[in-house]
Design a protein around this nucleic acid. Structure first.
Lengths: 109, 109
DNA sequence: AGTCAATACCTAAAAATTCTAAATAATGGT
DNA sequence: ACCATTATTTAGAATTTTTAGGTATTGACT
């Protein structure tokens, strides 16, 4: 099993929102970006990515518009809303608090 | 809701094992230690702590011995085994890898 | 024109972790 | 005697993520 998996839990929303502050992206693209930028550490399967996007969408943090690629194929581009930016700020702060707390236990090494 | 909660997921085992490298502890004590050292950020309820300890125990990473407090009351002291120390080392390394990866996405700020 | 890897999305069900909420009971201070 | 705190246990719910399958299109190569 992979020891890293457990530590990734709970961070997907934050990572998605952060990437969307750079530019509008579609789901497949977000998975690729995460994979590339983390050197393969985060390889988020579609079964994780899409439901996460639907959830952010339902909460109103992101919106989407569909665009055609070629003649029939659709891409769903997601866009972060002001709402989502505020939420992201909260998440980033919370992430700092938690990782700082963990460091207090495990030390710096 | 609490934005911090999601980021704590997956770190409990590591934190428990790290505390047990300092000294043998019982469950209730571990919850208190976590609460105190993190300034209340980690307030792990018993329903989380005890099952986590049982799981580490089943895997052989920790062992326990029961001690009497007063005449009838039992405390279950947990002790980290060599096994568990190796596992902890893996967890600490994996934690570093994941948090480094997250930093690559969200930046240092 | 045909093949096929890569692209792109969707979803149900399972797995895993943690929390909620309850129960039980002993200790120790007032 | 009372009662807050200590201490453990466990069932069931909630949440997140993965597994594992599906559908279908595009574009490069032959």
């Amino acid at each position: 099993m992979n020891y890293q998996e457990s530590f990734k839990k709970g961070s997907l929303e934050m990572l998605i929102l952060q990437l969307l502050t750079e530019k509008d992206c579609y789901g497949y693209e977000l998975s690729q970006l995460l994979f590339e930028r983390t050197g393969g550490v985060f390889s988020v399967p579609e079964g994780s990515m899409y439901p996460a996007l639907y959830k952010l969408s339902e909460k109103g943090y992101i919106t989407f518009k569909k665009e055609l690629v070629g003649k029939r194929r659709e891409r769903v581009y997601y866009h972060i809303e002001e709402n989502g930016r505020k939420y992201l700020t909260c998440l980033l702060e919370a992430y700092q608090v938690v990782t700082d707390s963990i460091l207090k236990i495990i030390g710096t090494n």
